[in-house]
Amino acid sequence: MSVELKVNGRAVTVDVEPRTTLLDCVRDELGLKGTHAGCEHGVCGACTVLLDGQPTRSCLMFAVQADGYEITTIEGVAPQAGELDVIQDAFCEAHGLQCGFCTSGMILAARSLLEREASPTVEDIREAISGNICRCTGYGQIIEAIQLAAERMRGQNAPASPSLSRTEAVR
């Protein structure tokens, strides 16, 4: 059946079976491969997209149910080709990832958090990403990345600078 979706600010029409998940639709019909399938049963968060700004597991809903929402995938985060947004840049700065498979979901979860909370505590951050499993990092550098992004967003316009100190040896 035909569904109209609004993805990353663009209206698209796709023809899918009613049983097609939003995850499969985004990946296979729209070719947006940055959204990943980890468990397909709603636990790992690798498939996270934003629906009207809310982190949502795209494996748990059908594409047809997404009609009428603003869908944001990881491809909709960078302002333009070759330019990272603040959160993405902070993940690079703090090395908040390794294999990258959970990263799209993590960044979208972080974006949702930082949109509603400019100065999240560590506990807020842990809570916000608790539905996103990362098997690589143990979360430490992800939490730091989100803290760094929050700091930079609060002081917007300050240029991204590698001199923002993060001591390596002991923290």
Binding site: F91, G100, I107
Partner: peptide
């Protein structure tokens, strides 16, 4: 910085799927 990170944070890793 870890150079690989750049492609992953924008969803441009290239996984088998």
């Amino acid at each position: 910085r870890v150079r690989e990170d750049r492609r992953f944070v924008v969803g441009r890793g290239r996984y088998v799927a």
